[in-house]
């Protein structure tokens, strides 16, 4: 189950409060971790931010390459978007505290995304 995968990642990294699996081709968040505090409007905005940063499949917004990882940092919040390899419309949206260990989180989050994207 996708939500269980997201809950497991959240348990491993409690500094990441929201984990949302989204489909950029439908502009829609499909599933989140159980404790995600965001309402539907905020999740839609999160999906829109993923498209603004990563770009829709085959349509990068800045540069010619298709980015598979976007990191957006402010002093208060760190947002990370990951694109699944093989399914460029599948993305994992993550809202974290700025102090999270980015390298460790990415190493765990990417396999989670691939599992959910491939349905395994």
């Amino acid at each position: 189950m996708a939500s269980e995968e997201l809950d497991a990642l959240h348990s491993q990294f409690p500094q990441c409060e929201t984990l949302a699996f989204a489909d950029l081709s439908a502009d829609m968040v499909l599933v989140t971790n159980t404790d995600a505090p965001q309402q539907r409007e905020a999740l839609n905005a999160l999906c829109a931010d993923a498209a603004k940063s990563l770009g829709k499949p085959g349509s990068p917004n800045f540069g010619d390459g298709q980015s598979d990882t976007a990191l957006i940092a402010t002093r208060e919040r760190l947002t990370i978007f990951l694109r699944a390899s093989g399914e460029p419309a599948d993305v994992l949206c993550c809202i974290c505290k700025p102090t999270i260990d980015v390298s460790a989180f990415l190493a765990a989050a990417r396999p989670t995304l691939q599992k959910i994207s491939s349905g395994s």
């Binding site: 540069g63 010619d64 990191l71 957006i72 402010t74």
Partner: peptide, 26 residues
């Protein structure tokens, strides 16, 4: 692309922020 993307940067990261896009430059 900066003239159009800079608006997205403002929306995503605000006045003081930081954005990374891995492999965006091929």
């Amino acid at each position: 692309k900066w003239s159009t993307f800079s608006d997205s940067v403002d929306q995503l990261a605000g006045d003081v922020g930081f954005i990374c896009l891995n492999d965006a430059l091929g």
